[in-house]
Design a protein around this nucleic acid. Sequence first.
DNA 1: ACCGTGGTTAGCTTTC
DNA 2: GAAAGCTAACCACGGT
Lengths: 106, 106, 106, 106
Amino acid sequence: MSKKTAQAGAQNVAKFPHNQNDSEEERDVENISGKRLKSFIERVERLEEEKSALGEDIKEVYAEAKGTGFEVKIMRRIVKLRKMDPDKRQEEDMLLELYQSAIGME
Amino acid sequence: MSKKTAQAGAQNVAKFPHNQNDSEEERDVENISGKRLKSFIERVERLEEEKSALGEDIKEVYAEAKGTGFEVKIMRRIVKLRKMDPDKRQEEDMLLELYQSAIGME
Amino acid sequence: MSKKTAQAGAQNVAKFPHNQNDSEEERDVENISGKRLKSFIERVERLEEEKSALGEDIKEVYAEAKGTGFEVKIMRRIVKLRKMDPDKRQEEDMLLELYQSAIGME
Amino acid sequence: MSKKTAQAGAQNVAKFPHNQNDSEEERDVENISGKRLKSFIERVERLEEEKSALGEDIKEVYAEAKGTGFEVKIMRRIVKLRKMDPDKRQEEDMLLELYQSAIGME
DNA sequence: ACCGTGGTTAGCTTTC
DNA sequence: GAAAGCTAACCACGGT
């Protein structure tokens, strides 16, 4: 890191832990913070990789379903409906009907 | 509206103004609320129409720019950058560089 | 613009019109392209400003409706429903019910 | 399923496999399709559960990082940058600078 | 503690 | 039919 370009001023110090002052052990401290940061970043990256792999899997399931004749769009609606709280869902549906009636939708 | 099916129970009354009790003027009250609701809805719809027309215009500008050889993607980045607060942007960029240095990204 | 840092190599020339070679009128050519680009950018910015103003307006309408006791979430559903093609919508609803029956959802 | 209300007409048959005609084994066929559909749905649901669990994990990592003084927003930028193709990224950055120079941004 | 805001993600549309 | 861009819903965060 270039002290000149990236020290970022006093107001940022808090956003980069343990870098308040340049002591003789400055490099160690930076390394420690840097290592912690890198570790966080890499943990996130690993998790995101798995997450996006699952996204792929889901797409594949839908693709297979589509291949056997089902409509993906409708399936997605079903998945969404099933994950809603039934009471809340019914509640909202009733309100929807009420509103529709009130404005004269069919 | 069918009172039977859509009255939605007491807990919803608050979500449909002035419908707390069925008086002799019930129908008027419904009409009033219904009319207000419809008016809100239609105002939104008008505004959304204009909004999406502007969306079309924007797309056309980009299309024209693309037609003369510019990269739309980069143009979008520029538009976004220009709309950021310069101080905050610089602040964040410095922090970004600091973090990148700390984890050894070139 | 610094030729050294931003000339971006031959492969990018196409993305910046009329800059293929450095002639004696190079600066003019850059200015011309730059002016065109700036004009595009500014047109976009104007349109986006208007667009986001309309977004504000829409939010205000919803806020006002909420203030008089309506549920914004339901209103949004209504707006969306009204903008769908009725045939397509009915079609999808029937398919949804069919699927729900098929998997034993109530 | 109510044949009357949800059979959805001939044009939908293709969207619900093996239901073309009502034979003596109609109920079996429906069960088979229904079971397949349900199986697809449940596979999706399982995958989405895992996916959203990973989302939670990611949030936790960021929360922990924030707790030790790092800026989540910047970390997200880093993760995003690291997942871009380096060549493409550099390419775009150069073009961005070129465009910025052309319109006189700093 | 809630509201409002901004950022992220998913779904839909359009293009190639 | 796949890929990309645009839009809208969702969600987590910061402010009041």
